[in-house]
Structure formats: structure tokens, C-alpha cells
Measured scan of single mutants.
Amino acid sequence: HDTTVHINGLRIEVHGASEEILKWIEEAARRGVEAEEIKRWVEEALK
């Protein structure tokens, strides 16, 4: 999927993410993980 995830006011563009990654992002956000940190993880995961 190409999608934009909104976390604590930060937009994260996610290209080619699976449902699993999207669920993981939402879970991390709920746990209060910094949005910048999530963004870094997602970029690494999608390389």
C-alpha cells in the first residue's frame, strides 16, 4: 500500500508497506514511540 500515517501530528509517507507494517506503526504510536523514531524504522524496513 501507499499510505500516509499520521502520528502525533507528524505525517509519515509509507510506500509499499504491508498491513503488518501499518499495524506495527499504529501499535508503536499507541505505546508513545517518538514519531521520528518510527519513521526511521519504517524507512529501514522498506529498504
Rank of each mutant, 00 (worst) to 15 (best):
H1I: 13
H1F: 12
H1E: 11
H1Y: 13
H1D: 10
H1P: 13
H1W: 13
H1A: 12
H1K: 12
H1G: 11
D2M: 15
D2R: 13
D2P: 15
D2K: 14
D2H: 15
D2S: 15
D2N: 14
D2I: 15
D2L: 15
D2C: 12
D2V: 15
T3S: 12
T3M: 12
T3W: 08
T3K: 11
T3P: 08
T3N: 11
T3Q: 12
T3F: 14
T4F: 10
T4G: 09
T4A: 14
T4P: 07
T4Y: 10
T4H: 15
T4D: 07
T4C: 12
T4N: 08
T4L: 08
T4K: 06
V5C: 09
V5E: 03
V5Y: 04
V5S: 04
V5Q: 03
V5M: 09
V5T: 04
V5D: 03
V5R: 04
V5G: 03
H6T: 15
H6E: 15
H6I: 15
H6Y: 11
H6N: 14
H6A: 07
I7R: 01
I7Y: 04
I7D: 03
I7F: 06
I7V: 09
I7N: 02
N8M: 03
N8V: 05
N8E: 09
N8Q: 08
N8R: 03
N8L: 04
N8H: 06
G9Y: 01
G9I: 02
G9H: 04
G9W: 02
G9V: 02
G9K: 03
G9L: 02
G9S: 03
G9N: 05
L10Y: 07
L10V: 14
L10Q: 07
L10M: 10
L10W: 04
L10P: 01
L10G: 05
L10H: 07
L10I: 14
R11P: 09
R11V: 14
R11G: 08
R11T: 14
R11S: 14
R11K: 13
R11W: 11
R11L: 13
R11Q: 12
R11E: 11
R11C: 08
R11A: 14
I12N: 01
I12A: 01
I12Y: 05
I12H: 01
I12W: 08
I12F: 07
I12M: 03
E13W: 09
E13P: 09
E13R: 10
E13S: 11
E13M: 07
E13T: 09
E13K: 08
E13I: 11
E13H: 09
E13F: 10
V14R: 01
V14C: 04
V14L: 13
V14T: 08
V14N: 01
V14S: 03
V14H: 02
V14M: 07
H15M: 11
H15L: 14
H15W: 15
H15K: 12
H15I: 13
H15N: 11
H15R: 10
H15E: 11
H15P: 11
H15Q: 13
G16C: 05
G16K: 05
G16T: 05
G16A: 06
G16E: 06
G16F: 07
G16R: 05
G16H: 07
G16Y: 07
A17E: 02
A17Y: 05
A17V: 09
A17C: 02
A17P: 04
A17M: 07
A17S: 06
A17R: 03
A17K: 03
A17N: 04
A17T: 04
A17L: 10
A17Q: 04
S18E: 03
S18G: 08
S18V: 06
S18K: 05
S18L: 06
S18N: 10
S18A: 06
S18Q: 03
S18D: 07
E19M: 14
E19T: 11
E19G: 08
E19Q: 13
E19K: 12
E19S: 11
E19L: 14
E19H: 12
E19V: 13
E19I: 13
E19C: 06
E20R: 10
E20S: 10
E20G: 08
E20V: 10
E20F: 15
E20P: 04
E20N: 08
E20C: 09
E20L: 11
E20K: 08
I21C: 04
I21W: 05
I21H: 02
I21S: 01
I21T: 03
I21R: 00
I21V: 09
I21P: 00
L22R: 08
L22S: 01
L22C: 05
L22D: 01
L22W: 11
L22Q: 03
L22F: 08
L22K: 04
K23A: 09
K23W: 08
K23E: 08
K23D: 05
K23M: 11
K23H: 08
K23V: 08
K23Q: 09
W24L: 04
W24V: 02
W24T: 01
W24R: 02
W24S: 01
W24F: 05
W24N: 01
W24G: 02
W24P: 00
W24M: 05
W24Y: 08
W24E: 01
I25T: 00
I25Q: 00
I25C: 02
I25H: 00
I25W: 01
I25K: 00
I25A: 03
I25E: 00
E26T: 13
E26V: 15
E26G: 07
E26W: 15
E26N: 08
E26A: 14
E26C: 12
E26Y: 15
E26F: 15
E27M: 12
E27H: 07
E27I: 06
E27P: 00
E27V: 05
E27S: 07
E27G: 04
E27C: 12
E27Q: 10
E27Y: 10
A28Y: 10
A28H: 02
A28I: 04
A28F: 14
A28C: 05
A28S: 05
A28L: 14
A28K: 02
A28W: 15
A28P: 00
A29R: 13
A29V: 15
A29K: 10
A29E: 08
A29W: 15
A29H: 09
A29L: 15
A29P: 01
A29D: 05
A29M: 15
A29Y: 15
A29C: 08
A29Q: 12
A29I: 15
R30V: 10
R30L: 14
R30Q: 12
R30A: 14
R30N: 11
R30P: 02
R30G: 10
R30D: 07
R30T: 08
R31D: 09
R31I: 08
R31S: 10
R31Q: 10
R31F: 12
R31G: 06
R31N: 12
R31H: 08
R31W: 13
G32F: 06
G32M: 04
G32W: 04
G32D: 02
G32A: 03
G32R: 02
G32P: 01
G32K: 02
V33A: 05
V33H: 03
V33D: 05
V33E: 05
V33I: 10
V33Q: 04
V33L: 12
V33R: 02
V33G: 02
V33K: 03
E34A: 14
E34F: 09
E34P: 15
E34N: 13
E34G: 13
E34K: 12
A35R: 03
A35N: 04
A35S: 06
A35P: 11
A35Y: 12
A35M: 08
A35V: 10
A35T: 06
A35G: 07
A35H: 06
E36A: 12
E36H: 11
E36S: 11
E36C: 11
E36W: 15
E37R: 08
E37N: 05
E37C: 06
E37P: 00
E37G: 03
E37Q: 10
I38V: 04
I38G: 00
I38P: 00
I38S: 00
I38F: 04
I38Y: 02
I38R: 00
I38K: 00
I38W: 04
I38D: 00
I38A: 01
K39L: 13
K39N: 04
K39S: 07
K39T: 05
K39Y: 11
K39G: 04
K39P: 01
K39Q: 11
K39C: 06
K39D: 01
K39R: 13
K39M: 12
K39A: 09
R40T: 06
R40D: 02
R40S: 06
R40I: 07
R40E: 04
R40G: 03
R40W: 05
R40P: 00
R40A: 09
W41M: 07
W41Q: 04
W41V: 08
W41R: 05
W41C: 05
W41G: 01
W41N: 01
W41A: 05
W41T: 04
W41F: 10
W41H: 07
W41E: 01
V42Q: 00
V42Y: 03
V42F: 04
V42T: 03
V42N: 00
V42L: 08
V42R: 00
V42W: 02
E43D: 10
E43I: 14
E43F: 15
E43A: 13
E43W: 13
E43G: 08
E43S: 10
E43N: 08
E43M: 15
E43V: 12
E43P: 00
E44V: 10
E44D: 09
E44F: 13
E44C: 13
E44N: 12
E44H: 13
E44M: 14
E44A: 14
E44G: 08
E44K: 13
E44L: 15
A45P: 00
A45Y: 14
A45C: 09
A45W: 15
A45Q: 13
A45R: 12
A45E: 05
A45L: 12
A45T: 09
A45F: 11
A45V: 09
L46M: 11
L46R: 03
L46N: 04
L46H: 02
L46V: 06
L46W: 08
L46I: 10
L46D: 01
L46G: 02
K47L: 10
K47D: 06
K47A: 11
K47I: 07
K47S: 10
K47V: 09
K47N: 10
K47G: 07
K47C: 07
K47Q: 10
K47M: 12
K47Y: 11
K47H: 09
K47P: 03
